[in-house]
Amino acid sequence: MDLRIGIGTDVHRLVEGRPMRIAGLDWPEETSGPEGHSDGDVVLHAVCDALLSAAGLGDLGSNFGSSDPEWAGADSNDLLAETLRRVGDAGWSVGNVAVQLIGNRPRLGARRADAEAALADRHGLTVSISATTTDGLGLTGRGEGLAAVATALVTRPGHLG
């Protein structure tokens, strides 16, 4: 069996009055949200980036560029569904994905299991989500933005080597 690993990273600035959608969940108590061409969900964007990387299909920008009007304002779950279709069309199956949210808000801990279950139910994915802060350092520490880093494992029948 062939195994490949991909890494994905995403960063978005936070803007007052914009909805906060992170890890596929809405966070209505938050007063700012990620700015972006789509809904700015850094967790799902990093997952897409890692899957595309692992499958050798480029990255999020080359597949869903901000100049493409089709994806303007898109729900990142739709981006993930299309990413999974492309990965599958290339002959790969997803083993698992691990993703870490980096930022002060939203506080993911109480809803982590909900986010993982929602991704499993909607996309059939095994995703482990974690979160951390940067102890006041950088754009995430100052509350100016959010970041996420993901690693994905994809497999397909074949020979290693």
Rank of each mutant, 00 (worst) to 15 (best):
G109P: 02
G56C: 08
N104M: 11
L25K: 13
I102D: 01
W92T: 04
F64W: 11
D89W: 04
A131N: 08
H123R: 06
T132H: 01
E70F: 12
A110S: 13
V97D: 03
D59E: 14
V149P: 00
D26M: 10
L146E: 09
G138W: 02
R107P: 03
H45K: 08
L79T: 10
L44I: 07
W27V: 04
P19G: 14
R156M: 09
S62W: 06
W71V: 07
A50Q: 02
W71H: 12
R107E: 14
R156C: 11
A120C: 06
G138I: 09
V154A: 10
N96S: 14
V97L: 07
G103A: 12
E82L: 07
V15F: 03
R13Q: 14
D49Y: 05
W92E: 00
G56I: 15
E144A: 11
D26R: 15
G65T: 07
L60V: 04
S76K: 00
A152L: 08
A81W: 02
A120N: 11
L153A: 15
R86A: 12
S53A: 14
T134V: 04
V127Y: 03
E144L: 14
M20A: 15
N96T: 07
A81C: 06
L108V: 15
E29L: 12
P19Y: 10
L14G: 14
L139C: 03
